[in-house]
Simulated assay, not measured.
Amino acid sequence: GSGFVRVNPPDASDDDVYISAAQIRRCELVAGDRVSGPVRRPRRSERYPSLVRVDTINGQAADEVAEGTHFDDLPCAFPSERFELGSEDPTLKAIEFLAPIGRGSRVTITGPARSGKSEALRRLAGALAGQDGLDLTVVLAGARPEEIAAWNADGAVEPAATAGLAASSDTQGQTIERCVDTAKRIAARGGNAVVLVDSLDGVPPHVARRALAAARAIVDGGSLTIIATSTHPVGGETTVVALDVALTSTNRFPALDVVASGTLRPELLVGDDGAEAIAKARLEAQRL
Rank of each mutant, 00 (worst) to 15 (best):
R209I: 05
V157E: 01
H206I: 11
V139A: 02
A153R: 08
A208Y: 06
D181F: 10
I176L: 01
L140P: 06
D201E: 03
S199E: 04
I176M: 00
S199Y: 14
D135Q: 13
K184C: 06
A160D: 08
G173V: 03
V203T: 06
D135T: 13
P204F: 14
A163C: 05
R185Y: 03
S168N: 02
T137P: 00
T162S: 09
Q131C: 08
T171Y: 12
A150Q: 14
L128R: 09
L196D: 02
R122Q: 05
V207D: 02
K184Y: 07
D132I: 09
K117W: 09
S118G: 09
Q172N: 01
T162I: 15
G130I: 08
R144P: 03
R144H: 12
L136M: 03
V197N: 00
P204V: 09
L136K: 01
S168E: 04
N152M: 13
A166N: 12
G190L: 08
D170W: 10
L134I: 06
R210T: 03
I186E: 02
S169E: 05
V180Q: 02
Q131K: 15
G130W: 11
E158W: 11
N152G: 14
A153L: 12
E158V: 14
R210S: 04
P159E: 06
D135M: 11
G202H: 05
A125M: 10
A143V: 10
R123F: 15
A156P: 10
T182E: 14
V203Q: 02
R123I: 12
V203C: 02
R185P: 00
S169D: 06
S168C: 03
A183W: 13
L136D: 01
D201R: 05
A150F: 15
I176E: 01
R144Q: 08
C179G: 06
A208F: 05
I186H: 05
D135L: 13
G202D: 03
T171I: 14
A143Q: 05
L196A: 02
N152F: 12
L165D: 07
A153Q: 09
E119H: 10
L136W: 12
V197R: 00
I148C: 01
P205R: 07
G191S: 06
T162H: 07
